[in-house]
Simulated assay, not measured.
Amino acid sequence: MNDNFKTNKRISMLQQLLINDCEQTVMINGDDRSNPLLLFLHGGPGTPQIGYARKYQKKLEEHFTVVNWDQRGAGLSYSKDIPESSMTLDQLTADTIHLTERLCKQFGRQKVYIAGYSWGSVLALHVLQKRSDLYYAYIGISQVVNIQKEEAEAYRQLTAWSRERKHRLLQKTLDFIGAPPWDGQVQRSLFLLCIEMKGGGFTHNPIGALKAGGRMLFGEPYGVRGSFLAARGQMFSLKHLWEDLIFFDAGKSVSSIEIPCCFMSGKFDLTVPGTTSYEYYQKVEAPYKEWHWFENSAHSPHLEEPDRFAEVVSRFASFHL
């Protein structure tokens, strides 16, 4: 355990933990260690946020002890020695449960809150199907429901917008790609570029994505070496987890969640259009559920509107301890 900064209440640490025979990196921060624990599952697959998370979660740390975790094969948890056979959704589910149990023991808690962002929302739903008893409530950010349906909806919205605005470059690129489903990653990569052109990608304002990337590349604890590992880890994770993601269908496999849920999407999101997430929110059965639109965000409302995100999550959590 590397405890970089500690007072009687505040906690700030970076840990290397052995989770199911694989060394993985966990960052824990909060203003008061007696606050509830919030485990954050990052997106991707393989897109960690330890490198820039602290900048955006200051308000969140007033209410929670926030746990950011580089999942197996991602970021500072990437290693060329990780068995490829272990890179499965089932294994990451087991890792999440193991980490949660470790956190409960370390902090003397019975349960934690769990937040899943994009790919992390897929992982979270799998975890909750197995061990919902470990969690007070679930926060679904840019909730993935069915990637194939989401790509089709995003293509429809982009095509309609480009024709309405007579955006020739976007129109020609979309015509060249053709409507999904696609056989390879080339079309998908071009499509993601189109989404960024429209402001529906990682952040609605492209400056936001550049700032996050800059903090990751030039700040602690990543820096150049950590950013290089993150790039390697993202390719590694996508290669082995993509099928788990592309064939996931929450509507069919997760019709109910046994704990309270809070879902949120950015109004401009075209990576995972909020309309599909909202349809799932309406249908899924849960003891309590609520929905929030973030009017100034695309795919990353927790980064684009961090103060509002902290307010929504802390208010939601206060009812479900």
Rank of each mutant, 00 (worst) to 15 (best):
Q57E: 09
A115K: 00
E258K: 09
L229P: 03
S132N: 12
I257C: 13
P83N: 00
C104G: 07
A310D: 06
R232D: 10
R33H: 14
N8M: 09
V284P: 11
I246M: 11
A298G: 11
E285N: 14
W119M: 13
S253W: 02
E153P: 01
W161M: 14
R168D: 12
C22G: 08
W182P: 15
L174W: 05
P36Q: 08
T96D: 05
N4G: 11
F64A: 03
H126P: 08
G30S: 11
M27C: 10
K172V: 10
A53W: 00
E101G: 01
H240P: 13
S297C: 15
F191K: 01
T203H: 01
G75M: 00
R33S: 15
K172Y: 08
L18S: 12
G116N: 07
E61Q: 13
E304L: 12
T275A: 10
V26T: 04
G213P: 04
M1F: 01
Q24E: 14
V127Y: 05
P180W: 00
S255P: 14
A310N: 02
Y117D: 11
S253P: 10
Y138A: 15
M197P: 08
G266E: 05
Q49G: 11
S12D: 15
C262T: 02
G251D: 06
K239R: 10
A310M: 04
I195R: 02
D70F: 10
D183I: 03
Q157A: 12
L190I: 13
S314M: 04
P287H: 00
N146L: 11
M264P: 11
T96F: 05
T271Y: 10
Q157I: 12
L134R: 04
G43S: 14
G208P: 15
E101F: 01
V224G: 03
S86H: 03
L103W: 06
F228Q: 14
L103E: 06
L60V: 11
D90K: 09
Q106F: 08
I257G: 09
A209S: 15
F191C: 07
V186C: 08
Y222F: 13
L76W: 00
I50G: 02
Q185T: 06
V224R: 05
R165Y: 11
Q15M: 09
G223A: 07
D32N: 14
F236E: 04
S256G: 03
L18P: 08
A298C: 08
V66T: 14
P36L: 07
N296F: 00
D31V: 12
E150I: 01
W69N: 09
P306M: 06
N68K: 00
V284M: 12
I246T: 13
H126G: 06
S314Q: 02
T203Y: 00
F316W: 03
Q71V: 06
N20K: 09
L241C: 07
G251V: 06
L18C: 09
H299Q: 13
P180N: 05
R168V: 08
Q148R: 03
R165S: 06
S85D: 15
G219A: 09
